[in-house]
Structure formats: C-alpha cells, structure tokens
Write a protein that binds this DNA or RNA. Sequence first.
DNA 1: CTCGGTCCTGAGAACGCGCTGAGGACGCCG
DNA 2: CGGCGTCCTCAGCGCGTTCTCAGGACCGAG
Lengths: 218, 218
Amino acid sequence: MRLLVVEDEARLAAALQRGLEAEGFAVDVARTGPAGLDAARHGEYDAMILDVMLPGLSGYELVRQLRAEQHWLPVLMLSAKDGEYDQADGLDCGADDYLTKPFSYVVLLARLRALLRRGAPERPTVLEVGDLRLDPARRRVTRADAEVTLTAREFALLNYLMRRPGQVISKIELLDHVWNASLETAPNIVEVYVGYLRRKLGRDRLETVRGVGYRLAM
Amino acid sequence: MRLLVVEDEARLAAALQRGLEAEGFAVDVARTGPAGLDAARHGEYDAMILDVMLPGLSGYELVRQLRAEQHWLPVLMLSAKDGEYDQADGLDCGADDYLTKPFSYVVLLARLRALLRRGAPERPTVLEVGDLRLDPARRRVTRADAEVTLTAREFALLNYLMRRPGQVISKIELLDHVWNASLETAPNIVEVYVGYLRRKLGRDRLETVRGVGYRLAM
DNA sequence: CTCGGTCCTGAGAACGCGCTGAGGACGCCG
DNA sequence: CGGCGTCCTCAGCGCGTTCTCAGGACCGAG
C-alpha cells in the first residue's frame, strides 16, 4: 500500500512516515502544495494524507485541482482547528475524511484503514489473479482457497505485483515501491523475496524476465 | 517514446535503462559528455536524462551547447546535492527539470512523464508489423498470436527494427543503439543475432541488404 | 569461371545474472 | 535473558546468455 503524505512541518512528516512504515505502508512525503499535487498525479498511491496549511498551494486547492482532473485517490485531510478553515470546507472540496490537529495517531490509523477499505470506487478491494486472492484491507492471501501466511514485506511485494498482472516490473521499480529504497541499494534483496514468495505460492507463479524484472503469471 | 540517458556511473545507468525500458521506453545510454551531446544532436529523442558530473563535458555545458544550437529537447537533470552546483544553475542553463541524488525512481518517472506530456502525445505502446507484435511493457513478442521467447539482446534488436519497418538499418547503427558499442567491435555480432531472430521469427522476415544493413519486411 | 568481399552459422568459451543457503542484526515477547 | 520471527547481507554456484572465432556459403564484379 502506497501512501502520500503532504506535510510541510518536518517533524510531523517524519513521525507520520515512520509510524506508517512500521505498519507496512510505503510512504512518500511531499513538502509543498505543488510538489504534492505533482506526486499525487503520477505516483499511483492508494491514499493521500494532506495537510491544509501548505506553502505554495493549500490542501483545499490541491484536492479541488486533483478532482477536477478526474483523480479519485482517497484523501484524508489534516488541519489545525483554529477556526480559519473548518471541517465543512474540507469535505466540501472533495476530501474523503477529515481530522483536526492535534489528533491521536491511533485515530488517524483507524480512519486511514477505513478509507483504504472503501478504496477508489472503480478498483476492487480484493485482488484476484488466477487462483490467488489478496485482500489488502484484511491483509490476507489465499491460494486456491487455502490461506497463505506472508510476512509484511512479502505481502507488500505480492500486493504490488498483483496490481499489474502480466506486466514485467523492473527490480528498481519494486525496490522503489516496496522497499522505498534508492537506486543504489543492491537489487539482490528483490531476488531473495521473490524466492520466498515462490516457495509459498508455487514455483511458476512468478516469472523471471532475465535482465529486466519479474512478471506475475496471469 | 525514445529517451537518451547520459550517465557515466555504470550501475545507475544500467538500472535506469532497465527500469525505463520496462516502462516501454526505448532507451539509449551515453557514457560521456561529448558522446551524449552527439547523440542528442542526431538521435531524435523525446527527452533526455542528464547527469551533471560527466567526463569530458559537464551536464551544464552540454545543455548550454545544445540550446545554443537550437535543440529544444526536454532535459531532466540529475546531480549530487553536495552544493558545488545548485538547482538554480541547472535550470538557468536551460534544463527543464531538476532532480538531486539520491532520488526516488517514482519521482523520476513522474517528472519525466510531466516533461513528456508537455511535448508530443504518447505513441501506442504496442508495435505491430505484419503478424508480428511486440509489447515493450509486457516484454512480450507474438508471431501470428503465438508467443515467441526472446533473450534480452534479441528483444532489444527486434524492438529497434520494429520501430522503423521497411527501412534499411545499418549495422553500425544497430551496434550503436542495441549494443551501445564503440566502432571497434566486430559487426559480426549483429549478423549472429539477426541469425538468432530469423530462426525464431521465420527466415524471410529480416532481409539482408548486402553492404548496407538489414530491413524488417513489412 | 575465378576472385574478393560479405554474410551465415555452428561450436564453444567467457561472462554475469539470478537463485539459494547460511548466518548476522534487530525487535518483540515470554 | 533467551527464543523466535523477520529482514537483510553475503558468497558461491549453476546455467542461460552473450560473444568470439573459424570455416564455409553466397554474391557481385571482372
């Protein structure tokens, strides 16, 4: 699950990132309104956590812009409750949920999970490819109706692959989305985890495309 | 979509090439400043990804030179953020966008797409010539709806040929684009791989034009 | 027909990618 | 503290891929 956090306050952004990553999300952070908008447009996130007060472009304007461009990414808005903006405004402009600062981290998580469960309307909440089934909300994977237990990392990897079955996905892209790693890190870790998945899901489910990447058999 | 990557660090260059090719781009790599400049002048690319630190000619100088010659190829610059040069310099000398190392691959992709969007509209991702079909994203080739498995090099060669069906393409050009090879390497390797392709695709698909090069039958 | 050059192809060597098992670091829980 | 599970690093290995090479086929010119 990929999240975009748009927050200019460095400390809060870092805390959110760390916390959410501990939950198994892949988190990207943008520091300004325009940067956030750009990332949301192109990044294929599952949800966005968005501060209202941002340099360059306010959270409200950002969502309005995004919706105008037909992006239906779930948005969870954060704002100081000092009155200038209020909750109605936030929901009005197209956000899916709303939280006022200071908020409890547990509440944020709960709201976020709820959002993700709803998902974008056109995307099914349960991914199915062949006899594989993956439920992001319940964090469950079954193969031919038999449950398969995966570690957080394995789950994240499979989740990513199942969103683009049949396509070849490069190791860098996997490193980037599943590990949030830079280009310098050794791609061997991907090979290792593909190995783990193969052991649990069956040998020929994940095809190696030599010199390029991996493909989930359809 | 054709991209030119100018980067001297071998590992990063290779990673970028793979990742971007998996996205369906046709990627050429140049290792030095002068080589990059030369390629940019003649290559008809849709965009260029350009490192700042390069042997022979810096990225800055390269762009400046290019712009002075009236080439308006979109340029995405990469640089270490260790201060010596800064972002303003980069944009100043004519680059269209700027990224500091280490950067995330998603961000690079997003910025690149944004750059390309300003330019020409995207071409269809699947190439078709006769009953041959090549899908760069899925890394798949079919001949009369039957799948053909190709090695990386074979795929790269066919990919290049299929972008200009009916045209005669010289061995040097193929060496240059498919192998990224210097002029010293023996052109026999091209003959060998044309042989491999003929074996897999059918004898009369690739025509030899003696003394000149090869042509993909339309 | 002969000759020079170009192209084709099979054999095999060299290389490097990807796979795997072993094991260390770390955090969590009893 | 010790046991456990997860995550990751590392080195060795196997094998597919890539490339070199040499001999022969083919083609065009004279």
